[in-house]
Amino acid sequence: MKKWVLPITIVCMISGLLLSLQLRAQSTIVSNPISERNQALIEIINKLENETDVIQSQISKIREEIETIEERKSYGQEDIIQLQNKVQKARKEAGLIPLKGPGLVIILDDNKAGLQAAQNDDPNRYIIHYENILNVISELKLAKVEAISINGQRIVTSSEIRCVGNVILVNTTRLAPPFEIKAIGNPSFLEDILLSGEFELLKNLGFPVSYTKHTSEDPIEIPAYAGSFQFKYIKSD
């Protein structure tokens, strides 16, 4: 037997294995062909996402413009200044003002390595679900969190976190992993709660999750909410 037979055989076997895996991954995509209807729906989704992005940036811009006019300094007019302060406080509470401060930046990511190692297992066991994010957030509230954003989406009272298929949406905006949760508050409180709940659970299941602590010298910045507040059913008198 020639010297090269053994190495070549091994390498051929490996490449054969990879080729078949590759073909399988390809064929699952190919055998599930995107129908024309789905293609049309995807185009509509992309178009709607672009439109909502544009409207949201217009909304943010106008909100700022109005704020600038309304917050114009009126020296000596105590009643206006008081009213301005009240409105500014209410805006801050509603999530309409970008904030900065100490806190945590938490990263939750899909367990790609785990899925790779167990190809035949249910992939759902290796991805971050909306419930995981919802639980982390509801725990942060226990630690008196003051402001939260997920991948740049500011969380306000009426923000929903949901999934459609395996796509996670926050404020009806599609988010892709890794999920970056920014939380402003007392870093030690937040850390204590984080380490005794959903985050630890995910870590123990092998998910690549991590967090960094930020002090007020090294603050986190959280953007303002750019969405709408519409009240059609609430009666206001």
Binding site: L41, I45, L48, I55, I59, T172, G227, S228
Partner: peptide, 15 residues
């Protein structure tokens, strides 16, 4: 997703 986004757009336009 299309429905949710349409609702969102309507609401944003009103805002």
């Amino acid at each position: 997703m299309v429905r949710n986004l349409s609702d969102k757009r309507t609401s944003l336009m009103e805002e």
